[in-house]
């Protein structure tokens, strides 16, 4: 009975992270982080800048190796996969980078066609249809001949999104998808993430610190701080979370346990010097 229950959890979670420890130089980025990403849902990961959100995506994608702990994607331990298996796994992962990361020497069309050309041997007209379908999904079918340099920030993010879904991945990872977008572009990206997740029957893992947008589309939110998950749940639960730190982050107020001032000497010391002491 218990064995069967274990099976069910593996089946239901696309990603399982257990006791992840990751160091960069001497700095401990993750210190025993554990979390799960349920299949078919949008899961968000939030936390203050520099807390290692992007690093976590890179660990899930196998670009960085954890120092200890396990990261299971589809039941496979990413940290221990051989190079060939890792490349195979990545074909099923679409990732949207913060900077969009479009290939600057290729047109919009060729950017979206790139993963298809690399991994399949489809005839040219099939590729054309596929690419135009993906571009149509993000509303940029008409922009196929533009170069990345001619696109606005919002457009390039949509092209990058079309490229990320080119091979119909089962896992979509978004690194700060809302940063630096105007309100309209932001709204478009929000709807797209939600829509694509259900249309592709994919699982989404989203990293962001835009509370409002993230809360609107996520089924589950994790908040990380100091290398650990400090809270997890639906957005309503987090607004009323018992930890003042979590509440402060979620409501975005300047006052709270997280200090406004960077650690410094006493005020008197800086302004009055020795006289004041």
């Amino acid at each position: 009975m218990s064995e069967r229950a274990a099976d069910v959890t593996v089946e239901d979670n696309l990603i399982e992270i257990r006791d992840l420890v990751f160091k960069r130089g001497d700095r401990l980025i993750f210190d025993g982080l554990s979390m799960t990403v349920p299949k078919g849902r949008v899961t968000a990961l939030m936390g203050p800048s520099g807390c290692g959100k992007t690093t976590l995506l890179r660990i899930v994608g196998g670009q960085l190796k954890p120092d200890s702990g396990t990261v299971l994607v589809r039941g496979e331990d990413v940290g221990k996969l051989k190079r060939a298996d890792l490349l195979e796994l990545r074909k099923d992962i679409g990732m949207l980078f913060q900077s969009s990361a479009l290939f600057t020497d290729l047109s919009v069309f060729e950017n979206v066609a790139f993963p298809i050309r690399e991994h399949t041997r489809l005839p040219e007209d099939t590729i054309r249809d596929l690419v135009l379908m993906k571009l149509n999904a993000v509303g940029l079918r008409g922009a196929r001949d533009l170069m990345p340099g001619q696109l606005s920030g919002g457009m390039s993010r949509r092209v990058a999104l079309a490229r990320a879904i080119a091979l119909d991945p089962c896992l979509l990872m978004y690194d700060e998808p809302f940063t630096g977008q105007d309100p309209i572009a932001m709204g478009v990206v929000v709807t797209l993430i939600k829509r694509l997740n259900s249309a592709l029957e994919a699982t989404s893992l989203l990293v962001s610190h835009d509370v409002h947008e993230t809360a609107g589309i996520s089924d589950k939110i994790y908040i990380i701080d100091d290398g650990k998950v400090v809270a997890g749940g639906q957005s309503q639960d987090l607004e009323t979370h018992e930890s003042a730190r979590v509440r402060q982050f979620f409501t975005g107020s300047p006052d709270g346990p997280v200090p406004f001032h960077y650690p410094a000497d006493k005020l008197e010391y800086d302004f009055l010097g020795d006289v004041g002491l």
Partner: peptide, 11 residues
């Protein structure tokens, strides 16, 4: 601009 990373992530 993360183009190398994204290439890696595309396998």
């Amino acid at each position: 601009t993360e183009q190398l990373s994204s290439m890696e992530m595309m396998g």
